[in-house]
Lab assay of single mutants.
Amino acid sequence: MTYKLILNGKTLKGETTTEAVDAATAEKIFKQYANDNGVDGEWTYDDATKTFTVTE
């Protein structure tokens, strides 16, 4: 399945997608991606749209 991440960081904003077997796997990938890019904030997930959002 395709999952989407919306980044609302102070210095980085944008979107990315990943292919993952489930939401938990996608979350791990996205949290590593956000960490690698210096984004740390409040996480939400919308199962209907398979979208994670992180807001600093």
Rank of each mutant, 00 (worst) to 15 (best):
Thr17Glu: 14
Gly14Gln: 14
Asn37Gly: 05
Thr25Asn: 08
Glu56Leu: 06
Gly9His: 07
Asp47Ala: 14
Lys10Phe: 14
Lys4Ile: 11
Tyr33Glu: 02
Thr49Asp: 05
Thr16Tyr: 13
Lys4Pro: 00
Ala23Met: 13
Thr18Glu: 04
Asn37Ile: 14
Leu5Gln: 00
Val54Leu: 09
Met1Pro: 09
Thr51Gly: 02
Thr49Val: 06
Thr55His: 07
Glu56Asn: 05
Ala26Lys: 00
Asn8Asp: 09
Val54Asn: 02
Thr16Val: 15
Ala20Ser: 06
Ala20Phe: 03
Asp36Ala: 13
Ala26Pro: 01
Lys10Glu: 08
Thr25Phe: 06
Thr17Arg: 08
Val21Asp: 12
Ile6Val: 11
Thr25Ser: 13
Ile29Asn: 06
Lys13Trp: 09
Lys10Ala: 12
Thr16Glu: 06
Phe30Met: 03
Ile29Leu: 07
Asn35Gly: 10
Val21Leu: 11
Phe30Val: 02
Ala48Tyr: 11
Val39Leu: 12
Tyr3Arg: 00
Tyr45Glu: 01
Thr55Tyr: 07
Asn37Ala: 14
Leu12Ile: 14
Asp40Met: 14
Gln32Glu: 09
Thr44Ser: 15
Leu12Gln: 09
Gly41His: 02
Thr11Glu: 08
Gly41Ser: 02
Val21Lys: 14
Lys50Asn: 08
Asn8Ser: 10
Ala34Glu: 01
Val21Gly: 11
Gly38Thr: 04
Asp46Arg: 04
Tyr3Ser: 00
Thr51Asn: 02
Ala23Ile: 12
Thr44Gly: 07
Glu56Thr: 07
Glu56Ser: 09
Ala23Gln: 10
Val21Tyr: 08
Asp47Ile: 11
Asn35Ser: 15
Asp46Phe: 04
Gly14Ala: 14
Gly41Phe: 03
Ala23Asn: 06
Ile29Met: 08
Glu27Met: 14
Thr53Ile: 08
Thr25Lys: 06
Glu15His: 12
Trp43Val: 02
Thr25Glu: 14
Val39Lys: 02
Ala20Asp: 03
Glu27Tyr: 15
Thr17Leu: 12
Thr17Gly: 04
Ala48Trp: 10
Thr51Val: 07
Leu7Ile: 15
Asn37Arg: 14
Glu27Gln: 13
Glu19Ala: 09
Asp36Arg: 11
Phe52Pro: 00
Phe52Thr: 00
Ala24Pro: 09
Ile6Glu: 04
Leu5Gly: 01
Ala48His: 13
Trp43His: 01
Lys31Val: 07
Thr51Ile: 06
Gly14Pro: 04
Asp36Gly: 06
Thr17Ser: 12
Asp46Glu: 08
Lys50Val: 04
Val39Ala: 04
Ala48Met: 13
Asn35Pro: 02
Thr2Ile: 14
Glu15Leu: 10
Ile6Pro: 00
Asn8Met: 12
Lys31Ala: 06
Tyr3His: 03
Ala20Asn: 04
Lys10Leu: 13
